[in-house]
């Protein structure tokens, strides 16, 4: 089942149409990367899912339940980490989590142990200072803790890594991977390597719609370029190959590349086997998300 399903979502600010019929399906227990350039409408989408913004059209269902603007009922399934999380600066992390537990109606006996568990998870268990003095990374980690407090089925993180240095980023990504066992994760980013590192599913948001969407493996398969790379052990083998298949072109010492549509990979493999050409490498070139992304954005 889809934990979050968005159909035909539209949203405009004044004359500016930010979302133009966005469709999105976030499967349960996925780590869903929501990619898009700055200003693409990622935050807008998330806030609409949380009922904080009124949609101009379309439907949103969280865990099968329809989202209504201004209502908070569906938010009981959701844990949310905003792009710039701000907490009451006069509280300590433990006090803040207790406050969150109380306003979200958690059982009193549950709040204490759950807070301690989460503070340990995000590495803030020994932090006794008030939030006022926290670094961005610490706030981001506290943000994840507060979002997970009432065991949400869907964790929504808005660019959790954007403002952080590489170490902080790795910590947050590792955290998101860890919590995957407990919840479905939807996070937005404009950093492709974040997605490649931890996501199972991905969608590109561009021009107000989701341009590519699916599991990372599917997308890679669908858009996989048909390029192959062959590297032989010796010059002789290479020459034999080139004579047999003129479409192969040399790209380096003992290295050839070719496209499936110019000459079928199966034929090349058959020839290599028949002639017993000593082989170092035969591989399909992986398209990077980056080249995919650029392709989508430039269309």
């Amino acid at each position: 089942m889809d934990m979050l399903r968005i159909t035909g979502l539209r949203k405009r600010f004044g004359s500016k149409e930010v979302l133009r019929g966005l469709d999105l399906a976030v499967p349960e227990h996925s780590v869903f990367g929501f990619l898009g350039k700055n200003g693409a409408g990622k935050t807008t989408t998330m806030k609409t899912v949380l009922g904080l913004l009124r949609a101009d059209g379309g439907e949103i269902a969280v865990n099968g339940e329809k989202v209504l603007y201004g209502q908070t009922a569906t938010n009981r399934w959701i844990g949310y980490l905003p792009d710039v999380p701000e907490f009451y600066p006069f509280m300590t992390a433990a006090e803040y989590l207790r406050f969150c537990g109380e306003i979200s109606g958690m059982a009193k006996a549950d709040i204490g142990p759950r807070s301690r568990e989460l503070l340990a998870l995000v590495g803030l268990q020994n932090e006794k200072h008030r939030i006022r003095g926290y670094s961005r990374g610490m706030k981001q980690r506290l943000g994840i803790a507060q979002a997970l407090l009432n065991r949400p089925k869907l964790l929504i993180c808005d660019e959790p890594t954007s403002a952080l240095d590489p170490v902080g980023r790795k910590e947050i990504l590792d955290l998101l991977l860890t919590v995957r066992e407990q919840t479905t994760v939807l996070f937005s980013t404009h950093i492709l390597s974040d997605v490649e590192r931890i996501c199972t599913d991905v969608a590109f948001l561009d021009q107000g719609t989701a341009k590519i969407q699916g599991t990372l493996n599917e997308i890679r398969a669908r858009y996989r370029s048909e390029e192959y790379l062959v590297e032989t052990d010796s010059e002789a083998g290479l020459q034999a190959l080139q004579t047999a298949f003129p479409a192969l072109h040399k790209i380096g010492k003992n290295q050839l590349s070719f496209r499936e549509k110019d000459c079928p990979a199966a034929d090349v493999l058959r020839f290599l086997a028949d002639q017993a050409v000593p082989l170092l490498r035969f591989e399909r070139a992986e398209p990077s998300l980056e080249s995919l992304f650029m392709e989508v954005v430039e269309q």
Binding site: A73, I78, Y80, V84, I103
Partner: peptide, 15 residues
């Protein structure tokens, strides 16, 4: 302005 209320509201606090 700081956005602190948004978090409380998304936790199910009634307006």
């Amino acid at each position: 302005q700081t956005g602190t209320l948004v978090l409380s509201l998304t936790k199910g606090l009634d307006r």
